[in-house]
Design a protein around this nucleic acid. Sequence first.
DNA 1: TATTGTTATACTCTATAACTATA
DNA 2: TATAGTTATAGAGTATAACAATA
Lengths: 181, 181
Amino acid sequence: MLNRPGQARLPGPRRKSSIPAAEAVAAQAATGKVDYGRLDDSLGYVLRRAQLAVFKTFQSTFKSADVTPAQCSVLLIIEKNPGLTQTQVSDALGIKRANFVALFDTLEARGLAQRAPASDRRSYALQLTPRGRALLRKIHTLSEVHEDRISVPLTKPERTELFRLLNLLLAPLEQGDDDGA
Amino acid sequence: MLNRPGQARLPGPRRKSSIPAAEAVAAQAATGKVDYGRLDDSLGYVLRRAQLAVFKTFQSTFKSADVTPAQCSVLLIIEKNPGLTQTQVSDALGIKRANFVALFDTLEARGLAQRAPASDRRSYALQLTPRGRALLRKIHTLSEVHEDRISVPLTKPERTELFRLLNLLLAPLEQGDDDGA
DNA sequence: TATTGTTATACTCTATAACTATA
DNA sequence: TATAGTTATAGAGTATAACAATA
């Protein structure tokens, strides 16, 4: 609820009018653009818009792979850390264990990953299937395309600096969460 | 689904085992930390975490005002642009008209804003109430506190640079949406 | 007792279609 | 015929509680 597409048209009142009368507010804004005031100086607002815009770009870039960012992150974690349990993967990604079940069910139903027996018989050792490894090769390619697309307006040094600043911002905020990563 | 709290414990299998046998995957990751691989170099992933962390900070900072970021943005827009219609405000913030109704109903029920008659009798001229203006004074104060809190790890020039880079990143991505702001 | 995976559930946010009253 | 506000609804994403199997 914090995007920023375009503008609309003109104002006026109607039926279910709850207020008494209110002298037909001038509507000085009916002419030009909308003044965003402090919102333009709000880091949270800009971050929200950036995240939403990048997410949309992700969708269009990854539509041939048919994976959401969440599914993608799970596959990447398992690729780098085969044998982790559901709790470990979901904790690593900030996903609730309960919500991870359906998410992984989808990956398993598509034959991309599977639950293998582990020494502790309460849990599973998560691993990729050959098909999952094949899809990951595509995902790695698409990831590069995606990063390149969203980084177009930035120079290499600017992109590096953006990463540095975001991680700098993130560090103290992610401390007081639950344990600390 | 893309946070990054802490780690979990250890792996192993269990009952609804769907795969044949799979030689008890070594689980080389059961010892130390999780390797995030490309996720750490993903702008989308870092942005998502930053946005989530900032949102959490917002909640704790603004709990005394009892407003969500979305409600806050609506109040700020109406403050700066009194007389706009629901379509204009929701378009400006990227909120669907249909979803704006309940959002504004809440603000109106709390006596913070109201629907005033407009010249075009299909629409309303949205405006603040005295109570809404009073709350906005508090919101402006809390906004400063909030921005200061999340900006702690950044110097003034770094914060300015972060804004510049985010807006740079945003500009081309928000072009191909619907019309263009 | 504590933990893992699981189910059920609820609440929020988001998206679409269709209706009404106006234009 | 088109637009503003509205309603209904469906789909994600997220959060908590409670249960069975296992430790």
